[in-house]
Design a protein around this nucleic acid. Structure first.
Lengths: 194, 194
DNA sequence: GTCTATAGGCAGATAGAC
DNA sequence: GTCTATCTGCCTATAGAC
């Protein structure tokens, strides 16, 4: 059993790689970048993750798991449907705060160049988010707090795409307000009006 | 004066490079890719565009110019504000049809890795689109055909981001319907309701 | 304008010592 | 687990012939 600090070399690799992918994209970071930042050699990275493809898969798996937890936390909370959507949007706003994209939003841009297992994992991430969003929209429709103009699935697609795109466009400006304005527009467009 | 066919080597380079950037991203295409597809050598590309940075700038310049023309064409048309926004959304749907992203949407993902002149050009592209969109929204507000919940600028930000994101998320699925559903959701969320 | 040839660097990856 | 050393290949870019 290795020492606690060193056991988590894999986790620290994932931390650094995650940040680099979210800010630069999957094709614009290298094993050398990660190794230099952690003061280890590239060979160490290959020991923990045989190749870039496996590292990428591990990144998505961990990210998706964390996202799932966040969704369950929202579900466990008290708010109504609009409040849940606002909490969901806040997750996205938080990643923008340190100039990152959503991991899977970035990988969606790189999609055509990704190994197939990573492509499948990105799709699965979106599927899970869309299913959760559609559920919340449907609930809001029943409550009378939301009035989607199309199906809950269409509304979910508009929300997920809208938030990913709001990140994408706001990030070059380095302007959190732009994201907030866009997110607010998405949510109020869906809300039932007086 | 060279022959017409060959004069446009520069234009043909831009055509191929544009498609590659829109589908794979700026860091995932090479001079070799473009040269092979055109049956010329890499040196030929360097003659027309000294480096990747200059090629990138030329790509954005041409793309932005074409986009500007499309906006003026919409302005010259007959429709009211909602019809103009729908026409605007259709431009985005068309790029998805051959599995591309918007050029500047893709470059927004690559933003952190771009040379500064390209970054500035991407921002300028967004600025122009946002200004046009805000103008149309404002017009719709006066007409009574649109009822934005915030400022026209906020609505413009939500529209631009929403459409870019709808492309981003729909493209991995290869599903044009997903884009259309999201786009429709964005537009009806903004429309004045009965 | 387009070619051949090549420079110099960095990428992802592996073998084998410790 | 982490290292040193190295391989192979592709990248951007340049020089100079035609």
């Amino acid at each position: 059993m290795p020492k606690a600090r060193d056991t988590d070399t894999a986790a620290r690799i994932l931390d650094v790689a995650e940040r680099l992918v979210q800010s630069r994209g999957f094709n614009a970071f290298s094993y050398a970048d990660v190794a230099a930042e952690l003061n280890v050699t590239k060979a160490t990275l290959h020991y923990h993750f045989p190749g870039k493809a496996e590292l990428g898969e591990a990144l998505i798996a961990r990210y998706a798991q964390r996202f799932s937890q966040a969704l369950r936390a929202i579900d466990a909370g008290a708010g109504d449907a609009p409040a849940r959507l606002a909490a969901y949007a806040r997750i996205y706003g938080d990643v923008l705060r340190d100039r990152r994209m959503c991991l899977c939003g970035m990988l969606a841009a790189d999609y055509e160049t990704l190994p197939e297992p990573m492509q499948a994992a990105v799709i699965q991430f979106f599927d899970e988010n869309l299913a959760w969003l559609a559920g919340v929209v449907e609930e809001g429709e029943r409550e009378g707090t939301l009035r989607p103009n199309g199906s809950p699935e269409a509304a979910a697609q508009a929300l997920l795409g809208g938030l990913e795109g709001a990140l994408l466009v706001a990030r070059p400006y380095g302007d959190l307000n732009r994201f907030d304005a866009a997110a607010a527009g998405l949510l109020t467009g869906l809300a039932a009006r007086a």
